[in-house]
Nucleic acid binder design. Sequence first.
DNA 1: TTTTAACACGCAAACGTTTTCGTGACTTTC
DNA 2: GAAAGTCACGAAAACGTTTGCGTGTTAAAA
Lengths: 348, 348
Amino acid sequence: MRRKITLKQIARELDVSISTVSKALKNSKEISADTIQKVQAFAKLYNYRPNNIALSLKNRKTNTIGIIIPEIVHHFFSKVIRGVELVANKRGYNVIIGLSNESFSKEVINMEMLANGSIDGFILSMSKETLLQQDYHHYNETMNQGMPIVMFDRVVSDIKCDKVIVDDFNGAKNAVEKLISNQCKHIALITTKDYVSVGRLRTQGYLEALEENKITPQAELILKMDDTLDYEVHLEKLEAEIEQLFKAHKNIDGVFAVNELYALSAMKVARRMGLNVPNDIQVIGFTDGVLSKHSTPSLTTVSQHAQLMGERAADLLIDKIETEFNAEEEQFQTVVINTELVERESTK
Amino acid sequence: MRRKITLKQIARELDVSISTVSKALKNSKEISADTIQKVQAFAKLYNYRPNNIALSLKNRKTNTIGIIIPEIVHHFFSKVIRGVELVANKRGYNVIIGLSNESFSKEVINMEMLANGSIDGFILSMSKETLLQQDYHHYNETMNQGMPIVMFDRVVSDIKCDKVIVDDFNGAKNAVEKLISNQCKHIALITTKDYVSVGRLRTQGYLEALEENKITPQAELILKMDDTLDYEVHLEKLEAEIEQLFKAHKNIDGVFAVNELYALSAMKVARRMGLNVPNDIQVIGFTDGVLSKHSTPSLTTVSQHAQLMGERAADLLIDKIETEFNAEEEQFQTVVINTELVERESTK
DNA sequence: TTTTAACACGCAAACGTTTTCGTGACTTTC
DNA sequence: GAAAGTCACGAAAACGTTTGCGTGTTAAAA
């Protein structure tokens, strides 16, 4: 077992200086043809590769981007990562991941761990706890140190940085319009509490679609779940509440849910109550997940193009990393990704 | 915007040497109490953090581990990552990911990219293409350079390194025994072609369970799918073949599938043919996925404990990284993770 | 033959750390 | 009052690169 070979070792072996070796490998015209030939042959033989860490230190550039997300076992986020990795790799960058697990402190720790030289910039989506606490000092400190940040999906306007978001408002609106045009008269909304901007916007889309179609929104048809609970408990509670909703309003003939699990639960409860989807009740969910495609009936969804979000975020970040930082006149962009209604069996 | 502060800047500011600053921050007893106090106060004020890259270079240690997987948008792999990240973080390591996308060349490129100093060791699962080509030179070269590798799930015995695998044989065997004890007499197996060791072992488990229960395996009840096809095409073909199988053997009353999609497809086809799951036909799938839990009927599965695999792999790797490399008498371990039968509605 | 130019290479600094060793200024000891 | 010891700090090397500049040797020009 031999360690990786360095310039120094090649230099010693060939009895030239380190700089000569370095230049020879770059075909510098300062170096004679036979020295170049000799060095390159030797380097190839020993499979020389420059040490990334040394390069990073010298260039003050790591060619690595950090991505911090609340959870990885989640289709939306893993698709985003795939997108990030795709363009990062194409543009010569590595990707290092940190999971906040929806915790504020883990988010802070992870960011500090990476911000000390390990990466050139961040792509991140805020944890729920951070959204609740509204404490953004770690983002601002990071950016003050000259490290660019691109946020995606879960963003807040208080933070000045590049962002990639889904068009939640219109995605929701289109979905509800679809239900309306499919003759639904009483459309329920199943959503989360409003502290996540994403949920708020989807609710607004729902309301606007109703109003534009002269349907008066009814507060009783809106179910707001507290999603900070434990997952299992949450699911049971969810089903119970949906059942209650359906029983209290037998005329509900359409459901728009802000995520996959809510939509699936609605279908499950409906079936249990002897209702047929889509004949008695039509359901649309806002999601990119796998469940929709394989459920029975398969679920009509508002697709978020998660992978595309990742790609756009990575491009945005790398662009920023690679452009000269010009004065204080920095411009921040917000890229909006359009949603797409994927029609399946849960709607007519 | 100020850049991150360095020892040199603190030294200049306080009019002491760099070494004094460094020592003062470490409470060295070489340094007087007031100098220590002064330096630490200043460092705190400016939020000094040592530069990771410089440390990595100096210590020849990055405290980062690389993980290379075929695909990230996949429950099994993302759960493994979560496990890896969990213990890596706990032990002071970062995780950098590379996706091979099931391609041999991408696997090689990714490994080379990371092997040049960026990380201290690899955790990886082989791409299908690598398994097919049986070209393992990149693993061996990496290990020859003193970089440890831990493989998980998809492994081959030709490569000498630490491994974490699922007990595929017994997992499959237990599942089939469950079907047998549930009175199934004609159990079909839906699997992939044999080049992945994992599939081969599961098939063996299936066979052994039958034989131990005096049931003669019938080759016609074994469906081997070619999973190198395009996903969509694959799925259609899969359903067609399952339907054909069911029609040709009306007495099939149990199905064991080596993955989630195969199991779900089997249930789907069964339902389409008017068969009731689990009354007419019982199904068990080998998987950790989400679909099983939310399908109707929910699917009984052989759970692989993916997160635990990730945790064990990370521990194994970090242990190896942190122990002195003692001579040529290196020992490699293979950790076997036991499976667990999670009973749901698709079995009686 | 002397001056100039081209060539081929080495030196050294820099990136930000850590750590060994050396040293000047005091203090203690005899 | 001289020798020895303690204290507090700085210089320098090392990790592995890249690159501007200096320099000795040779060849071409005057």
